[in-house]
Design a protein around this nucleic acid. Structure first.
Lengths: 143, 143
DNA sequence: CAGCATCCCCCACGATACTG
DNA sequence: CAGTATCGTGGGGGATGCTG
């Protein structure tokens, strides 16, 4: 297994620093697959959508909304579009009146659910410790 | 980084008072330990720092910088502070001239590395499929 | 060397309104 | 019902300069 796969990116160098005047279509990409993935699942609702779909199998837009408290329809829509574009979620439309749209995980999405579930388990198991550590630091900083 | 200090504890004279703007009804989902975690590791450099520290054991600030292409001093500093505050990274200072500061994973941080590595493996294995799906969608949208 | 302080840009996200 | 279009904002994050 290869580790440290990321190449240099050459952030410093001749061609960087165009940032200030405004640049078009740049690619700042370090080709780090993990970071790209984390950028995706790190967006606020993505992991939750995946989780809910993994648990429920197939859901309609509104059902999804109902199971994800606090999400706006815009963000749910955007999140789903991204997931569909990424090939993680399949979208099925029934052209009735009113229309019904179903979402479910693709096999790829299902395979992502595995490491994601592991992360969830870690979170539920260890986040209390993290919070305790934070509280600790806060107290130390105040005195 | 996300917030986390919703408890006021305004030490009169301190700098609490996050109340500006007044957010109502936050704290929705009970299952969002995961989301909090993803907010953390979803920040641009966190997972990379954890990875590098997991591989190297203990590193100084500059060494860390050298192994994470593209990171700015400010963001590395911020990231490390958060990781230390979260109890995932330990900070050790040698009060010499010039000073030397070492960072290494705590046992807690090490335990996080496990699911994180699983996620990395998924990414390296399946991100090509994700990218292919994206390209596919693009082509479909163009015609 | 390690790291704050400052400025500023960009974009994820929320609220609201409208459509097929 | 299942979205799109538009506007506004907070804060993540890059660049640069200064300090102990």
């Amino acid at each position: 297994m290869s580790e440290l796969a990321e190449d240099g990116t050459s952030t410093s160098g001749g061609e960087a620093g165009v940032t200030r005047g405004g640049r078009r279509g740049d690619l700042f990409d370090p080709t780090c697959a993990t970071r790209k993935l984390l950028d995706r699942i790190g967006t606020k609702w993505t992991s939750m959508v995946v989780k809910v779909l993994a648990a429920a199998g197939e859901l309609r837009f509104t059902e999804l909304r109902g199971r994800i408290p606090g999400v706006s329809q815009k963000m749910l829509s955007t999140t789903l579009q991204n997931l569909v574009a990424d090939g993680l979620v399949a979208r099925r439309v029934e052209h009735t009146v009113p229309p019904r749209v179903f979402y479910r995980l693709t096999p790829l999405g299902d395979s992502l659910e595995v490491p994601l579930a592991a992360l969830r388990e870690w979170a539920e198991r260890h986040m209390p410790e993290v919070d305790a550590a934070r509280a600790d630091v806060r107290r130390a900083a105040e005195s």
